[in-house]
Amino acid sequence: MPLSRDNASPLQQQIAELLRQEINAGAYEPSGKLPSEAALGARFAVSRVTVRLALARLAAAGVLERKQGKGTYAAGKQVRHGLDQLRSFHESLLAQGLHAEMRLLSSALVALPQAMGELAGAAQGQCLLLERLHLVDGEPIALGRNYLPPALAAMAPARIARQPAYAMLAELTGLRVARADLAIKVGLAEPDVARALGVQQGSALLLMERSSYFADGRCCDCSVFYIRPERYAFVLHPTFAADSRPA
């Protein structure tokens, strides 16, 4: 709907109302991120000051959330990680139609942490530790640390950077991950994690600990994901079995 220069309503009010209607219609799903001020200014043929006033009006009404250096989002929109299906972290983002990417921060052979038990192919107690940053619309959303069989270190760095852990395991072994045990906790951002995610040290984070297994019972992946909670939610849709009744 075009703006009316003859309308008694100020342009910023007209823009705010149009954006409100689009948000309510789900135009900015699934992430809820709106275009930049420059893009909105070009769309409506107005100055960035006018756009900024329109966005401020919606933010004051609780319709939008504006994050310095991150962008503008429809309030309350979260990335939703379904627990009903077994997917790698990156694949769960792609499955929602999000503009998701991974950035490899480090890759090294390290001693397998004793608390993680046994890992398939971890000769002499060594494993491959991958530290990768997960982003949605260019914004850091999680830092993942994957402890994987050391044979994966022979893969090309470009493939390690871009491929989800489960895809790499399938390529290496010809086997698919059959099950995973997940634990979801709350933790605080340590300095290195805080820097990577762009949050303050000590900020509350979601921690997802994951152990993945082949069908023969061998553990093939031990991972920890440090997740910004304000835009991330874990969801599960349980149903009662046909012969069961609620307690």
Rank of each mutant, 00 (worst) to 15 (best):
M1R: 03
R5C: 12
R5W: 13
N7K: 10
L18G: 08
R20S: 14
P30E: 06
K33A: 09
A39E: 15
A45K: 15
T50D: 00
R52E: 09
A56G: 15
A56R: 14
R57P: 09
L64E: 12
E65H: 02
R66P: 03
K67M: 05
K67R: 14
K67T: 10
A75I: 05
V79E: 03
G82N: 02
L83A: 01
Q85F: 09
Q96Y: 00
G97S: 06
E101I: 03
L104S: 08
S107I: 10
V110G: 09
A122R: 02
A123K: 04
Q126P: 05
E139I: 15
L143E: 05
G144R: 04
N146F: 13
Y147W: 15
Y147I: 12
R159Y: 00
R159L: 10
A161T: 06
A161E: 05
Q163D: 14
Y166E: 15
A167M: 11
A183Q: 13
I184A: 01
L188D: 06
E190K: 08
P191C: 09
L206Y: 04
R210Y: 02
Y213K: 07
G217E: 03
C222G: 02
I227E: 06
R228H: 08
E230L: 13
Y232M: 14
S244G: 02
R245S: 11
R245K: 14
